[in-house]
Simulated assay, not measured.
Amino acid sequence: MPVAVPSTYETLSAMITPALFMTATGSLIISTSNRMSRIVDRIRQLNQEADDLGRGAKQVDFVEERLEHISVQLDRMIERSDTIRLALTVLYSALAMYVGTSLTLALDALAGGWFLVVPTTLAILGVGLMLAACVLLIREARIALRNNRLEILFYQKLRNLRAAKPAASSTEESPPAG
């Protein structure tokens, strides 16, 4: 049975269809790249703060607690940056699948419809990769929110330590009863 060869218009229309996925993936790439930049900025800020504290360049209380908190924050930043890096890799891979889908649709049209399975497979892989990237981005967002909670709890701890400090020093100054 002869295979029907699609018209040029149908071929171009089919090649444009993956562009919707490319646009969505591109938007996620831009947003994920921005998130990565913020992580890099935060890592640099934490490193600078730790360096200042370590050299005594900052006159603050509870230096050891602050250095420990920064260490924990940096560990979480590593986890976030690894997750974002993986998400970006997956998103770029998805974009490549969609470009491949568009290209193989054109090649399939030129070949007379002999390998339609290739663009279909590439499109399915692209959608699967996009789903995986979304899962990674959800994971990274959850890590970021846990970091925020940790930050809030740390500063609540500092306030409590400061509140307890005058009470402890006033009991040390009072003469013993006797």
Rank of each mutant, 00 (worst) to 15 (best):
M1I: 09
P2L: 06
V3I: 15
V3H: 13
A4P: 02
V5T: 11
P6M: 06
E10R: 06
E10K: 01
S13A: 07
S13Y: 02
S13D: 10
M15G: 02
M15Y: 00
A19W: 10
L20R: 05
M22L: 14
M22W: 07
M22G: 09
T23R: 12
A24R: 09
A24N: 08
S27K: 01
L28H: 06
L28R: 07
L28I: 04
I29C: 09
I30S: 05
S37E: 12
S37N: 14
I39Y: 02
V40T: 05
D41Q: 12
R42N: 12
I43K: 07
I43G: 02
Q45R: 12
Q45V: 05
Q45M: 09
D52P: 01
D52L: 02
L53E: 03
L53S: 04
L53T: 02
G54R: 02
R55I: 01
A57P: 03
Q59L: 09
V60C: 06
V60Q: 06
D61N: 07
D61I: 01
D61F: 01
F62Y: 10
E64T: 07
E65T: 01
E65S: 09
R66Y: 05
R66D: 02
E68G: 04
E68W: 03
H69A: 13
S71H: 12
V72L: 13
L74E: 03
L74C: 04
D75V: 03
D75T: 05
I78F: 03
S81Y: 06
S81T: 09
R85Y: 09
A87R: 08
A87H: 09
T89F: 08
V90F: 02
V90T: 14
L91Q: 07
L95W: 11
A96Y: 08
M97K: 05
Y98L: 12
Y98S: 05
Y98V: 01
G100S: 08
T101E: 13
S102V: 10
S102C: 12
A106S: 02
A106V: 08
A109M: 08
G112V: 15
W114I: 10
W114H: 10
F115Q: 12
F115A: 11
V117G: 03
V117M: 07
L122W: 10
A123E: 13
G126E: 08
G126W: 11
V127C: 07
L129Y: 15
L129E: 14
A132S: 15
A132F: 13
A133Y: 09
L137K: 11
I138W: 14
R139P: 04
E140K: 13
A141D: 06
A141R: 11
A141Y: 05
R142D: 14
A144R: 10
L145Y: 09
N148F: 07
N148D: 13
E151P: 00
E151T: 07
I152H: 11
I152A: 08
L153N: 09
L153I: 00
L153M: 08
F154P: 00
Y155C: 00
Q156M: 10
K157Y: 08
K157D: 05
R159L: 06
R159V: 01
R159G: 00
L161K: 06
A163F: 07
A163M: 00
A164N: 04
A164G: 00
P166T: 11
P166L: 10
A167P: 00
A167E: 13
A167D: 03
A167V: 06
A168V: 04
S169N: 11
S169Q: 15
T171W: 11
E172P: 03
E173T: 14
S174P: 00
P175W: 13
P175A: 13
P175L: 15
G178K: 15
